[in-house]
Computed example of a mutant assay.
Amino acid sequence: MSKPDFRTAVQQEEAYLRLLYPTADDTPGCISLFDTYLSCNVIRNQIKSLYRYGERPVCAPKMEDFKFCLSLKSMHPEERRDAWITRRAEWWAHRRLAKSSEDIWDIREEPLKNFPKPIPDYPVVPGPIE
């Protein structure tokens, strides 16, 4: 299965995000994005990331989302929603098209033949029931 090109991936993500954020009120607010940034820096999340991945979490993109939100304040709510959706769609498209642990697996179009192998019927030997 081949991956779509970047433009197609962005269009697919935009279509999905327009369903996810049907109105301007549904997009995350700047305070919410700032809270997300702060929670990234909390000691609990720092330790969890060190344990799971061996490194501190990267919080800079969360701050960039917050700054981007602040830059949209002078726009009309629908324009702000469109700008947010475009930004997130591009982010998701980059993520989808980048290398992933899933790249080593090929998606099967049909199940393997004769899998799982049928269990043969063994004759039941009568014996004492305990």
Rank of each mutant, 00 (worst) to 15 (best):
T27K: 09
P28W: 00
P28H: 01
P28N: 05
P28S: 06
C30N: 02
I31H: 12
I31V: 14
I31T: 14
S32A: 14
D35M: 13
S39M: 15
C40W: 03
C40P: 03
C40G: 02
N41F: 06
I43V: 12
I43C: 10
Q46P: 08
K48N: 10
Y53A: 11
Y53F: 14
G54R: 04
E55D: 13
R56D: 08
V58S: 11
A60D: 10
A60N: 05
A60V: 11
A60P: 00
P61M: 00
P61R: 00
K62Y: 12
M63I: 02
E64G: 01
E64W: 01
F66Q: 02
F68G: 04
C69V: 01
C69Y: 00
L72P: 00
K73D: 14
H76I: 02
H76G: 08
E78V: 15
R81D: 02
R81N: 06
W84D: 06
R87W: 02
R88S: 09
A89S: 08
A89M: 05
E90N: 11
E90D: 05
A93V: 04
H94I: 05
H94Y: 11
R96T: 07
L97C: 02
A98S: 15
K99R: 12
K99W: 10
S100Q: 03
E102G: 12
D103Y: 07
I104Q: 15
W105A: 09
D106V: 09
R108F: 03
E110W: 04
P111C: 04
P111M: 04
K113S: 14
P116N: 08
I119Q: 05
P120I: 08
D121Q: 13
Y122S: 14
P123K: 13
P123I: 03
V124R: 12
V125N: 13
